[in-house]
Write a protein that binds this DNA or RNA. Structure first.
Lengths: 259, 259
DNA sequence: AAACTTAACGTACATTTTACGTTAAGTTTG
DNA sequence: CAAACTTAACGTAAAATGTACGTTAAGTTT
C-alpha cells in the first residue's frame, strides 16, 4: 500500500462522509508469465475481522473508487499502487453486478471495517492486465502482501473473486486467438519457444513446434535479433522482438469472418 | 412504458427515499436488421425540462437499476418493457464510468426530473442485443415512443449514448467475425443472400457472393429447407435455417490461434 | 568422442481461400 | 411468346495456408 492509499484510508476511518463511493469498485486480474506457468497476482487479506485467528484468504487487487474517479483511471491507480508500474495493458472485461455477490458474512464485515463505510451492494468492474514476471516483481513477491499464484492452483478467495479470475481467463483465451496480446507477457527479447509455451499454457493445449514456428515467423512484426541465448545445455535459440509499429500497420484492412 | 414502469415512476416521484439506485444504470443497444440496413432502437426523450419547446433528442433504452437488482436482469427488464420480448440475446459489453459522462446541463436536469432523484454520477453498464425486425416491431414502430434508426444516420442523442452505440457496433463487428450471432438478427427461414447482406452491412464491406455461399453452406448447422422464395422477379432462392444444436456441437474442441 | 538436448529447416500432402466463369430458374418487356 | 433481364446456384483452376511429419544443426554433458 503506497502512501497515497494509506492517507486515503486514514481519512476514511476518521471522517463520517467517505471519499469513496461505497457502491462501485474495480478489481484487477493481473496475469503474469514466468516462462513456465500462467500466474495471477493476488493480495492477501491481511486484516482480520477481530484480529484473532482467522482464515487466510486472498483477494484480487482492487478498491472502491473515489467519488468522482473514472473507472479506467481507478484500475490504473490500483495497478500502480501495487506494482509501481504504469501505462500497462489494462482492459475492462466484465461487470459483476449480482446484488448478493458480497455475502452477508465475515467477508462483508471485513470490507466494512477496512473501507470505513457501510457496504450495501457493490458493483465491481473487472479489468485484466498482462505483465512480464521478472526480478523486479518476483524476488520479493512484489511486496505489499501480494504474490503470484498459478491459475491452476488458486488459494481460497473472498467474494466472487474466483469467478472473476475465471471469467478473465476465458476472455484472455478468446483474445489471444486473434490478437497477439501475449507479447505483453513476454520480455522485450524472447525466443520462439517462450511464445509457444505461453500459448500452450493459455490455450491449455500442446502445439507442434515446427508448425508454430512457421506461422509465427511469417508475421511481419516479429523481428529476429542477432543475439543468441546463452548458457543453455543445447543449441542456443535466437532472440526475437515484437515490433508494435509493424503490428499496427499489418492490422489495417484485414477482413475476416468465419462460420 | 409498461404499467410496471409507470408504477415505479409514480412511487419515485412521491417518496423521499427512492427505490432506484441513483448511481447505477443499464443501457441497451438493440440492433435490428430489416433486410437492408442495420438499425438501432432508440427511445424518444419525450418529457422536456419545463414542458416548453425543447430540442428533440433520443436516448438508448435504459434505466436506473433498482436497489437490489441484478444488472443482467435489469437489462432484460428494460428490453422486455420496451419490446415485449423476453429471453433475447443480450450481452454486456462495456461500462461507461467517466464521472463527467452526464454533463451538468439540460440532460442532467431532465434525468433528475424524470427519475425523481438527485443525480450525482451515473455509471452505466451497456448491453447489446440483436433482434429481428418484423411486422410486430416495425409497423407501429414498437409503440412506447421507440423507433428504429439506421446506424449510419443517427439523430442527436443525450449524454454519451452515441459513443455507447459506436462501441457496441465495434463489439458486434468483432463478434460476428468468429461467432455466427448474426442468426439472432434473421428470421427463422432465410436465404443466403440475406445473410450475406447482413454480413456486408455489419462489416461495412462487399463480399463475393460465390465464395460467401461456399463458406456458409459448409457449416454443418446451416440446414437447407425445401421451401423456395416466392414472388420475386428472378430465380427464387432456397430457404435455410440455423440449427442451434448442431452449432453448439460443432464448436466443441476448436483450437485456433493467429498472428 | 559419443550421447544428449533443443533449435532450425524442409517436404509432401490436404485443406482452404481467392478470383473468376458458367448455367439455372424465374419474371418482365417488346 | 421469345428475348432480355435479374439473381440463384454451381464449378474450376491457381494460390495460399495448414498439417503431419522427417532431418540437420549447434551447443552441453558424460
Amino acid at each position: 500500500m503506497c502512501i497515497g492509499t494509506f492517507l486515503y484510508r486514514f481519512v476514511v476511518m476518521n471522517r463520517p462522509e467517505s471519499i469513496f463511493n461505497p457502491q462501485l469498485s474495480v478489481d484487477c486480474v493481473i496475469f503474469g508469465f514466468d516462462g513456465k506457468h500462467l500466474k495471477v497476482l493476488l493480495a492477501e487479506r491481511c486484516e482480520g475481522i477481530d484480529g484473532s485467528a482467522e482464515q487466510k484468504k486472498f483477494k484480487l487487487p482492487g478498491d472502491l473508487i473515489h467519488l468522482k474517479e473514472d473507472l479506467d483511471l481507478a484500475a490504473g491507480r490500483i495497478l500502480h499502487e501495487l506494482t509501481g508500474l504504469s501505462s500497462i495493458f489494462l482492459k475492462q472485461f466484465s461487470v459483476f453486478g449480482d446484488p448478493e455477490r458480497i455475502p452477508d458474512n465475515d467477508d462483508r464485515k471485513w470490507l466494512e471495517k477496512t473501507s470505513g463505510v457501510k457496504i450495501d451492494r457493490v458493483v465491481t468492474t473487472a479489468y485484466y492486465s498482462l505483465i512480464k514476471i521478472d526480478k523486479s516483481n518476483t524476488d520479493q513477491e512484489t511486496g505489499n502482501h501480494a504474490s503470484w499464484h498459478k491459475i491452476t492452483t488458486l488459494p481460497p478467495l473472498i467474494f466472487d473473486h474466483k469467478k472473476i479470475i475465471m471469467t478473465g481467463l476465458e476472455v484472455l483465451r478468446k483474445e489471444i486467438r486473434f490478437e497477439p496480446i501475449c507479447f505483453e507477457l513476454l520480455p522485450a527479447k524472447f525466443t520462439v519457444r517462450q511464445i509457444q509455451t505461453l500459448y500452450e499454457v493459455i490455450l491449455g493445449q500442446e502445439l507442434d513446434n515446427r508448425n508454430f514456428r512457421k506461422k509465427l515467423l511469417k508475421a511481419p512484426y516479429i523481428k529476429q535479433l542477432t543475439e543468441k541465448q546463452q548458457g543453455v545445455a543445447h543449441k542456443p535459440a535466437l532472440f526475437y522482438r515484437f515490433d508494435r509499429k509493424q503490428y499496427l500497420e499489418s492490422r489495417r484492412d484485414i477482413l475476416f469472418y468465419n462460420f
